[in-house]
Amino acid sequence: MDERLRAAYLATDYRVRLPQGGVARLRIGAPPPGALLALTHGVPWAVITAWNPQSQPVPRARNRSAQRALLAELRASPDVRAIRAAAGVGADGWREPSLLAIGLDADAARVLCSRYGQLAFVAGVGEAPPQLHWTKAAP
Results as ranks from 00 to 15, higher is better:
Ala35Met: 03
Leu36Val: 10
Ala38Pro: 00
Thr40Asp: 07
Thr40Ser: 07
Thr40Arg: 04
Pro44Met: 08
Trp45Val: 08
Ala46Cys: 05
Ile48Val: 15
Ile48Cys: 15
Thr49Val: 08
Thr49Asn: 09
Thr49Lys: 09
Ala50Thr: 04
Ala50Trp: 15
Trp51Ala: 05
Asn52Trp: 10
Gln54Ala: 15
Ser55Val: 05
Ser55His: 00
Pro57Asp: 11
Pro57Asn: 08
Val58Asp: 01
Ala61Met: 04
Ala61Leu: 14
Arg62Phe: 03
Arg62Cys: 00
Arg62Ser: 13
Arg64Cys: 08
Arg64Met: 09
Ser65Trp: 12
Gln67Pro: 02
Gln67Glu: 04
Leu70Met: 14
Leu70Thr: 02
Leu71Asn: 01
Leu71Trp: 06
Glu73Ser: 12
Arg75Tyr: 06
Ala76Met: 03
Ser77Arg: 12
Pro78His: 11
Pro78Val: 12
Asp79Ser: 10
Val80Met: 10
Ala82Trp: 03
Ala82Pro: 01
Ile83Ser: 05
Ala87Asn: 07
Gly88Asn: 04
Gly88Glu: 03
Gly88Cys: 05
Val89His: 14
Gly90Ala: 13
Gly90Lys: 00
Ala91Gly: 13
Ala91Pro: 02
Ala91Leu: 13
Asp92Cys: 09
Trp94Phe: 09
Trp94Val: 07
Trp94Met: 04
Arg95Thr: 14
Glu96Thr: 09
Glu96Asp: 12
Glu96Arg: 03
Pro97Gln: 03
Ser98Tyr: 02
Ser98Lys: 10
Leu99Ala: 04
Leu99Gln: 11
Leu99Trp: 05
Ala101Arg: 09
Ala101Ile: 00
Ala101Pro: 03
Ile102Glu: 15
Asp105Ile: 05
Asp107Ile: 14
Asp107Gly: 08
Ala108Ile: 03
Ala108Glu: 02
Ala109Ser: 07
Ala109Cys: 06
Arg110Trp: 10
Val111Ala: 15
Leu112Arg: 04
Leu112Val: 11
Cys113Asp: 11
Arg115Cys: 05
Gln118Cys: 08
Leu119Phe: 10
Ala120Ile: 07
Phe121Leu: 11
Val122Leu: 08
Gly124Gln: 06
Glu127Asn: 04
Pro130Ile: 06
Gln131Tyr: 00
Leu132Tyr: 02
